[in-house]
């Protein structure tokens, strides 16, 4: 695969390292995740972009060993050098409380409404014995300050806070144990667009201060392009394209990435009809012989429907891959140049 590029940073192992991850659910014709490769280096931000059903959320959850009931997984998932898929329950608990943390889309769903914010923040640290009450409280205060919330929030209840404030609390909570990896699953989708900017600014700031690796899961390609170092685009359980954020956005190599960009109503594009991706994402009951996108792709040829495209390095681009038979012969329109 892409070992040549990966060996550019041999001295440092990746914080999140996923190789050939394949997850199958009972009663489906094809795997939900079909050979996912993903790397997030220390202090790096990688955006995982895809529509619903692409497997992006499942991939991020697999990093914490959270797989749906009845799922079978193969491949390698390593967080900070530890193999997640072979961990027992205790090791997984330790992983989730100390090494990696997750921020969800709806901050209200992840917090007990009858407990004070202070209890919520210090709970994990106190119950796993990592810190006593005083130390935990001190850390909570420091982090609240870091996310820009006043001390009184510790004594408040979740319903007294707005969605944006609550998401800050969730971010503070996720950083309590000083994790090396932060998984953010659409953390700004439920928020207003101006609040989104604030949360992103905060995440960026904290990330540079604490050196946390960030996997940012989103459906918004534009947002991914502006916040991430690298982007990975998922479709039907596979990563179809990866690369540096601006380059993927400006010069996509996979027809799906290009189609997604063209279908997004944007401010800098001419008004009028949007370019539509015909059809819909193939569901899990249908088996896919060739490229999963072939049926909806404007550039598909017969071969696309028959044999699965291998993931190949993109020439003249560092740490970039694409899984498309025709990508070397296609010229695709990107986000900035559409007109």
């Amino acid at each position: 695969m892409n070992t040549a590029q990966r060996s550019q940073t041999p001295q440092k192992s990746q914080t999140l390292h996923i190789r050939g991850l394949r997850v199958s659910l009972p009663g489906t014709a094809r795997p939900v995740l079909d050979g996912v490769d993903l790397e997030v280096g220390a202090g790096q931000t990688v955006a995982l972009v895809g529509e619903s059903g692409s497997g992006k959320t499942l991939t991020s959850r697999a990093a914490l060993g959270m797989l749906p009931a009845g799922a079978t997984a193969s491949g390698v998932v390593e967080v900070d050098g530890q193999d997640v898929l072979t961990m027992d329950a205790r090791a997984l608990r330790r992983l989730r409380t100390t090494t990696a943390a997750m921020i969800f889309q709806d901050p209200r769903a992840g917090i007990n409404p009858v407990r004070r914010v202070g209890d919520f923040l210090t709970e994990a640290l106190r119950t796993n014995g990592a810190a006593d009450k005083r130390t935990a409280r001190k850390r909570a205060l420091a982090l609240l300050d870091a996310v820009g919330l006043p001390e009184r929030v510790l004594r408040q209840y979740p319903h007294e806070l707005s969605g944006g404030m609550l998401q800050r609390v969730m971010i503070a909570a996720s950083l309590m144990a000083d994790p090396v990896l932060l998984l953010a699953d659409e953390p700004t989708t439920a928020l207003d667009v101006t609040t989104q900017a604030e949360i992103i600014a905060l995440l960026r700031d904290l990330q540079s201060r604490f050196g946390t690796a960030l996997l940012f899961v989103t459906h918004d390609l534009e947002l991914a392009a502006v916040i991430a170092d690298r982007v990975a685009v998922m479709y039907a359980g596979r990563i179809v394209e990866t690369g540096p954020a601006e380059q993927v956005f400006a010069d996509p190599k996979h027809p799906y990435t290009a189609a997604l960009l063209a279908a997004t109503p944007r401010l800098d594009a001419p008004a009028g009809r949007l370019a539509v991706i015909p059809g819909r994402v193939p569901d899990l009951r249908t088996e896919i012989a060739g490229c999963a996108f072939a049926g909806r792709c404007a550039h598909a040829v017969d071969a696309c429907g028959q044999e699965r495209p291998e993931t190949a390095a993109v020439p003249d681009r560092s740490q970039a891959t694409v899984a498309c038979w025709r990508s070397s012969t296609l010229t695709l329109q990107g986000g900035a140049s559409r007109g």
């Binding site: 667009v193 101006t194 900017a197 992103i200 600014a201 918004d220 534009e222 502006v226 916040i227 800098d268």
Partner: peptide, 21 residues
């Protein structure tokens, strides 16, 4: 103007948006 600036795109600066807000 704040709303427009908040839409992710080229030249998007979350610090600036936060300050404007």
């Amino acid at each position: 103007r704040l709303l427009l600036e908040s839409v992710p795109g080229p030249g998007w600066d979350p610090q600036l948006i936060t300050a404007a807000r």
